[in-house]
Design a protein around this nucleic acid. Structure first.
Length: 423
RNA sequence: GGAGAAAUGGCAGAGUGGUCGAAUGCGGCAGUCUUGAAAACUGUUGAGGGUCACACCUCCGGGGGUUCGAAUCCCUCUUUCUCCGCCA
């Protein structure tokens, strides 16, 4: 969430920037400032009342010690009144603070200067493209047909066991998927990311920490009996490792990578673009997460983009990089680059990675800080990106690497797979 | 799942109703000594809010209560440890 102090300092800039998200933020920001004024005023009054009460209590103690019970009794009556007052004040404070918090949760992050205005993915800005679209055989198939033909992914079996959107990977399909996971993790480790394994279920506080709660509640699977959520991305457990932490400045950059399955209810999504691996309830993803010094976070973002480009280059997949427009930008993000692979057989772009800088928006919720050189603590910046999301990379490989009598395996993956062709 | 014990500052560990934000040790930082380092000695060292800076307020696992006053008493939740049971 935004810091009230920042809202006070840059209200007009924020209003202008939030227009790119098609939001008229003026009333929200004004209300936040007004609530914060009220909060501070109440806090001051409460502090005064408590200070008085503390002083009197000490005096009472002294009177008791010196046997002056009568004097103590008089003061006790006074503190009784102060107690009533402070009760009222602290109730007011709690409710004002809660209201302010709820309001701040509703205000999205401030888009970066470079973010284009716009409403939908149509308005995203292509900033880079690379790789040749392969010439495919005349009877090229989409991946769900290929999956059936070579018996490497079974969607029906998944339906039987669980439901739609939970595919079963078989044989070389399963092996290829595992190869991709290992390959991605190795590439990330090579680039300086520390590999970690994290829980796949998180508690409510973690959901709030990274911003999935309260606004995307319906997108997560919730285990009611234990009040836990299945993670929609490794971002949630990995970033929450730092919840409430004060890190040392010299620890920067903090770079982690983790493989996890991801669970998404995808409530409300429908249409022709959800076939096969395009949209699933459970899928695998390798994530990279960074915690950075505020002055270094955009440099870090660029580094992450370059890193992912390198991977796609090695896989020899045609891809492009988009800068998301205000309307398509995630709630908590300042700047997001999406990577898309071109699927020749489907004749469309498939999103395979999303790389974002959240600046201090998550840190403020997480209370993730560092000590600067002056010994002051300030919020760190958090970033994350997919490196990469498996199903669509798999779809891209299956479709773009198909030949007359099978599917070839990208060269870099052969050592991981132990075979060079699916047939 | 059953029984018992515990939760205090970066760590260890005192503190069972008032002067305790908290002894002491270790660690960290600064200084003295030293060519330099180590040792020794001296000083300093939690977080948040608030202030120009002070003052002041809050925090001893979380929440609630008793009291004029709570780290200390009561309730509750969570977590950890030990023993037993079960088990990948």
């Amino acid at each position: 969430m935004l810091q009230v102090q920042a809202i006070r300092e840059s209200k007009n800039e924020f209003i202008t920037a939030l227009k790119k998200r098609n939001i008229d933020a003026a009333p929200l920001l004004d209300k936040a400032i007004a609530l914060d004024d009220k909060r501070r005023e109440t806090q001051t009054q409460l502090d005064k009342t408590l200070a008085e009460s503390n002083t009197l209590s000490k005096e009472i103690g002294m009177f008791f010690k010196t046997g002056k019970a009568q004097e103590a009794k008089v003061l006790k009556e006074k503190t009784g009144v102060l107690k009533e007052e402070s009760k009222v004040l602290s109730d007011t404070l709690a409710s004002v603070a809660e209201e302010l918090q709820a309001l701040l949760y509703q205000i999205p992050n401030i888009p970066h200067d470079s973010v284009p205005a716009g409403n939908t993915d149509e308005d995203n800005e292509e900033i880079f493209a690379e790789g040749d679209v392969p010439e495919l055989v005349s009877n090229a198939l989409p991946h769900w047909e290929l999956a059936k033909k070579y018996d490497i992914i079974d969607f029906e079996l998944g339906v039987k066991v669980t439901g739609a959107g939970f595919p079963v990977y078989k044989g070389k399909g399963a092996r290829l998927q595992r190869a991709l996971i290992s390959y991605f993790l190795d590439k990330n480790a090579e680039a300086g990311y520390t590999e970690i394994q994290v829980p796949h279920l998180v508690n409510e506080a973690s959901g709030y920490g990274t911003g999935q709660l309260p606004d995307k509640e319906g997108q997560m699977y919730h285990v009611g009996e234990d009040d836990l959520y299945l993670i929609p991305t490794a971002e949630v457990p990995v970033t929450n490792l730092f919840r409430g932490e004060i890190v040392k400045e010299e620890q920067f950059p903090i770079c982690y990578t983790a493989y996890t399955p991801c669970f998404r209810r995808e409530a409300g999504s429908y249409g022709a673009h959800v076939r096969g691996l395009n949209r699933l309830h459970q899928f695998d993803k390798v994530e990279i997460v960074r915690v950075e010094h505020p002055l270094k976070s955009f440099e870090a973002l660029d580094g992450m983009v370059e890193h992912i480009k390198n991977i796609l280059r090695e896989l020899k997949l045609p891809y492009r990089v988009l800068r998301l427009c205000g309307g398509d930008l995630g709630f908590t993000s300042v700047l997001t680059y999406d990577f898309e692979v071109f699927s020749t057989a489907q004749d469309r772009w498939l999103e395979i990675s999303s790389v974002s800088n959240f600046e201090a928006y998550q840190s403020n919720r997480l209370k993730l800080r560092f000590k600067d050189k002056n010994g002051k603590s300030q919020f760190a910046h958090t970033l994350n990106g997919s490196s990469l999301a498996l199903p669509r990379v798999l779809a891209g490989i299956l479709e773009n690497y198909q030949v007359e009598d099978g599917i070839e395996i990208p060269e870099v993956l052969i050592p991981y797979c132990g075979f060079s062709k699916i047939d």
